[in-house]
Design a protein around this nucleic acid. Structure first.
Lengths: 232, 232
DNA sequence: ATTTTTTTTTAGACAAGTCTAAAAATTGTT
DNA sequence: AACAATTTTTAGACTTGTCTAAAAAAAAAT
């Protein structure tokens, strides 16, 4: 009788960890692509087969978390969107806790937060939020939704879109892989650092920048297109 | 292919949340009763049927977590015991976090810790332990095992075993229900309070005690047999 | 020592979440 | 427009963890 689900006793609609993970994946694809998520995209994101995705989409549609029409891809309903946003909120708040309080680095905290985001207790996450000083951004610079799911979009540009002489502050990353984050750590291109564009090389789209008004650094396009800067 | 288990990628033996909960229940029964746990006792503790317990015992025996012989009850193997102790450690450390850092009361923290104890990361719990100042006891006075599973047994007696004139400090509870803990809060019989036995009434086994050398209090046997005191 | 009661196990079923292989629908190409 | 390629769905199967009902074993009572 559904004893193995996350919830044990609640009047809210039951939702399993697997269902939550699918909702989050759909939410991200919807956001990133700006359109309905198709089966293959979801199976790629979730590391499952297309068949499994179809099964899950039926379940999620039954529970009114998604709008689903065969062969047409899916979008989230209001409730699905609310649930996904709450997950993102939990994930990012736990990441702040792991980094600020337990000393994890920004490339380590993601995997642990993937587990912690499934803890069921709206009250817990609000208390944790207060304990951490109601942070607005997670350790990667991604904005943390408030209890109602709202969050301010940052005024940001990609580093590769900046022109010579532009200045700003590093506020986030697009790519979130450990390898990329560790590379940024090594070269000193971390959150809150001041960035000034000194030169742009058309040949390979690399850019020379100055960090905190001190050391100069040559950045490849692969890096610059994944770094967000808030223009001063 | 076992994607829905807690673990996703690890060389350690896979163990599901349900399996963990059974191990913990068996561990507690073994400890409390001082003998092998029988099927009915486990089904009562887990709120499942005897049939479900039998199924699970077979699985746990296959994985070498328990010694199981039909109709004979079960005990934990070395590995089962190690796993159960690690769970108790995680549970109690999370309880300290919830109470000390997030302001939960000792009757609220248990249920949340039941969820958090299943987070898979030995490193996380060690960091949390350090963050909290390596506490030796949880908010109910129960000892926290160290990384190797060792913990000091407290030198304690039940309040109903004390004699007139005995003094000591409240260090723990046997019963852990919310109702009981909230009652203790209301009468002021909380962790670390000084207790002196003033009178013992044979009729109903109630005791009159003095708290912190100040107010006097009459305690029923139902309460006194569930309160642990460390004799001064 | 039998019979009765209690405990435990077996048997068969179900839902969630996954898979592979094959069929159907959609999209792209000539 | 017809054929080919891709995407998506269906069909059937498997594991975990649960259940109820019935059978078997062990314990208790006469």
């Amino acid at each position: 009788m559904l004893k193995h689900l996350s919830f044990t006793s609640s009047n809210k609609k039951m939702i399993s960890q697997a269902e939550e993970n699918y909702l989050k994946a759909i939410y991200k694809i919807n956001e990133r692509e700006g359109k309905s998520a198709n089966t293959n995209a979801i199976s790629a994101a979730m590391n499952t087969t297309a068949a499994s995705v179809t099964d899950m989409l039926k379940r999620l549609a039954d529970k009114d978390f998604i709008h689903y029409e065969k062969y047409k891809g899916v979008t989230l309903t209001t409730e699905g969107s609310r649930t996904a946003t709450a997950l993102v909120r939990k994930h990012r708040i736990w990441e702040v806790f792991l980094c600020d309080k337990l000393g994890y680095s920004w490339d380590e905290c993601h995997d642990l937060a993937e587990q912690l985001e499934h803890i069921q207790s709206p009250d817990l996450i609000d208390r944790l939020d207060t304990f951490l000083g109601k942070p607005k951004f997670d350790p990667h610079g991604d904005p943390i939704p408030d209890r109602d799911g709202n969050y301010a979009k940052r005024q940001q540009v990609r580093l590769d879109e900046m022109l010579i002489g532009d200045r700003g502050v590093m506020v986030g990353v697009h790519e979130h892989s450990s390898a990329f984050l560790q590379h940024l750590d090594r070269v000193g291109l971390v959150l809150a650092v001041q960035v000034e564009v000194l030169e742009v090389f058309d040949f390979d789209k690399s850019v020379k920048i100055r960090l905190n008004g001190l050391q100069e650094l040559l950045i490849s396009n692969k890096v610059s297109e994944n770094v967000f800067i808030k223009i001063a």
